[in-house]
């Protein structure tokens, strides 16, 4: 019979640039929140506890994208001390909304636009580190498991997380929102000439929006089997310009959409 190790695994929940909504989502799983703090040894979780301690962790759960040099340094330190690294939420997985795909030059332009004509970064930024374009954590370190979501859903997070803290391997089986949408028995927006990004968006949300008659905007990020050229054709067919279609795909799709459109 299956039985987990007696010793509780050590877990750290870390946050970088994002709304911290994924960390909040963990605390919001009301029925399981107590179990979350008892089933593993939570050594680091800024949002939930005042005392942090990080010699090393078995599982590091990382939220948010990286957009300062200091964050990058911290991220690499976490990778060094962690057994398994989990990217939590769309920002950590794909860069999130703040991923704009800027190169150095456009980023400088943007800084000028925001912080004044000189383009010099204000002194207070030294506190958080010099800014850089937002990128997903997988651009810098090896990520073992990705759990996208904006924020992550309990149904998606718990089964993966509990397997990790039990020393088991989570099942990797990507599917698009359409699968869960049909599980719910919903009609298809695209067939009625309405916008929806279900076919290119990772499942895990139980098709929450389509089930409430709201189109999918793609907040769970890219679906591994996504066919972007065909999706763009479909969006054009329902009246979007190619530019608009790509803009909408990039909103949450981050670096993956950019790579796919470049043909990588």
């Amino acid at each position: 019979m299956w039985k987990r190790d007696e010793k509780k695994p050590v877990v750290g929940i870390f946050g970088f640039s994002g709304c911290a909504g994924d960390q909040l989502a963990i605390l919001h799983m009301e029925d399981s929140t107590v179990d979350f703090f008892t089933s593993a040894d939570i050594k680091f979780f800024h949002m939930a506890q005042s005392h942090q301690e990080v010699p090393e962790v078995d599982v590091a759960v990382i939220e948010g994208s990286i957009n300062t040099e200091r964050q990058l340094k911290e991220l690499k330190e976490i990778r060094e001390m962690a057994g398994v690294v989990v990217a939590l939420g769309t920002c950590a997985c794909y860069g999130g909304i703040q991923y704009l795909g800027d190169d150095e030059e456009t980023f400088k332009e943007r800084m000028k636009y925001v912080y004044g004509k000189s383009g010099e970064t204000p002194e207070f930024l030294d506190l958080v580190g010099q800014p850089k374009p937002a990128q997903p954590i997988s651009d810098f370190i090896d990520v073992d498991i990705m759990i996208p979501g904006c924020p992550v859903s309990e149904e998606n997070f718990v089964p993966i997380y509990t397997k990790l803290i039990s020393g088991l391997l989570p099942q990797k089986y990507p599917m698009p929102v359409c699968v869960e949408c049909k599980y719910e028995g919903n009609d298809c927006f695209l067939l009625h000439g309405k916008f929806c990004l279900g076919p290119v968006t990772a499942a895990g949300c139980n098709a929450t929006c389509p089930s409430l008659d709201i189109s999918c905007v793609g907040c769970f990020g890219t679906y591994e089997g996504a066919n972007y050229p065909s999706m763009i054709d479909k969006l054009k067919e329902i009246g979007l310009s190619e530019e608009d279609a790509i803009r909408k795909l990039k909103m949450f799709g981050g670096n993956k959409v950019e790579q796919a459109l470049k043909g990588d």
Binding site: P176, V179, K182, P199, G225, A226
Partner: peptide
Amino acid sequence: EKCLSCGTCSLV
């Protein structure tokens, strides 16, 4: 080339 791999055909 056209297929979206969305799974709808087999689910319905």
